[in-house]
Computed example of a mutant assay.
Amino acid sequence: MLTPDKIKRINELSKKSKTIGLSIEEAKEQTSLRKEYLETFRSSMRDTIEHVKVLDPEGNDVTPDKVKEARTKKFLN
């Protein structure tokens, strides 16, 4: 999980890059923070999708097999 301080720093660097530009060190920091943000986002999205159960109007489980397999695999590990 990304801390509020890291999110604040991402926003600061983004604003600075659009106005006056970043130093080499700041650009490296921005790349690192963005990478961490994307990893956190993807992990959260993956967890959300794995916990979704799709039902048709008649109440039948129509969750895609790929999601069911991912859920089963995750819980077996």
Rank of each mutant, 00 (worst) to 15 (best):
K53L: 15
R34W: 11
G59Y: 02
R71G: 00
K8Y: 01
R42Y: 08
S23F: 10
I49Y: 08
E36G: 03
E39P: 00
E50I: 06
A70T: 01
Q30K: 09
E36F: 05
E58R: 05
D5C: 05
K66E: 15
D5F: 10
T63I: 08
V62F: 01
R42L: 11
K6D: 13
E26Q: 13
I20Y: 06
E12I: 11
Q30N: 09
P57K: 05
G21T: 02
Q30S: 12
R42P: 00
E69F: 07
K68I: 13
R34K: 13
E69V: 06
R34Q: 15
D56V: 15
T31N: 10
T19C: 12
N11Q: 12
E29Y: 01
V67K: 02
E29K: 00
R34D: 14
E26W: 07
I49L: 14
R46S: 13
N77Q: 11
S44H: 08
L22N: 03
Q30A: 14
D5A: 12
Q30P: 04
T63Q: 04
T19N: 09
L13M: 03
K15I: 10
V52W: 05
D56G: 15
Q30I: 04
H51K: 12
G21R: 03
I20S: 13
L38Y: 03
E50Y: 02
D65I: 10
L38G: 00
Y37E: 09
P57F: 06
L38F: 05
A70W: 00
L33Y: 03
M45I: 15
M1C: 08
R34S: 14
E29A: 06
V52R: 06
A70M: 06
T31A: 13
L2Q: 04
I7L: 13
H51N: 14
L55Q: 06
L2I: 12
T40A: 13
D61Y: 10
K18S: 13
T40N: 07
T48P: 01
G59L: 05
R34V: 14
G21Q: 02
K74L: 11
I20E: 14
E12H: 06
S14V: 01
S14I: 02
L22A: 04
S17K: 10
S32C: 06
D47Q: 15
